[in-house]
Amino acid sequence: MNEIFRGKAWSFGFRSAIMIYFLCLIVLPIVGIYTQSFSLGWTPFWESVSDPLAWKAVLLTLKLALIATVLNMLIGTMIGWVLIRYRFPGRSILNSLVDLPFALPTAVGGLLILLLLGPNSLIGMLAGKIGIEIVFHEPAIVIAMLFVTFPFVIRAIQPLLEELDRSEEEAAYTLGASKAKTFFSVIFPTMLPGILSGAMLAFSRGLAEFGAVVLVAGNIPGKTLVASVFIFGEIESNNPQGAAAVSVMLLTLSFLILWLVNQLQARRSTP
């Protein structure tokens, strides 16, 4: 079989299929968005972007996605560590449950948050008593982002931890290093590329989140309206240029992050 696929015609066919796929599904839509947003020239683009509601939405999204990412780095690192380093009943089930947010429609995630943390729920009521409002405020958005980006950091550090040879730690011990020193100078540097690349993916996914956020954010323009919901609103109110302008900002950010992730991974393979 292998021999057949190595033939010239097959090879050409495969490569063309991939190029066409790439062109139709990735390059064309992206170019479309850029042309759409600049279709009326720089000035309307600039106007759309400098609309306070637009850039406030983008800034809010950036801020909340950043918070969610930092939380993810902490929690994800801990969970990844526990799942690899500890043996306990239910570990493999927990390990497969990590991917649940990827499998679940994000709207379901949003609904879960509404039900669990909403004003009528126990937690929502308790939080309300001490003056914290979760749902329809920023905390809910962060929680929604946290929920959908949960697997990234965990899945990025797990292979690195598995690869880390136990004897590397033991070598550090025999060289006189304490457990803490060993963690910070041997284990943590091994995990760091995973934490960073996982965090960047989580960040760009957080920026883009719509389904879960739209249900719990309240979507008050200028206050709890995130970029993706803003785009949706612009389309609804028949303003594709406005939508495209914000899209371009998000897209450019995503590209930047993707490039950074690549740089990180390249450095990892040839340090």
Partner: peptide, 27 residues
């Protein structure tokens, strides 16, 4: 092991992958 005053050479060497030769020896 930290207080036994021993050196250990592991079968797979267990070098610290993210450190240079110099840093490995200096650890």
């Amino acid at each position: 092991p930290q207080e036994r005053g021993i050196g250990f050479v592991f079968q797979n060497y267990a070098l610290f992958k993210h450190m240079t030769v110099y840093d490995n020896v200096a650890f």
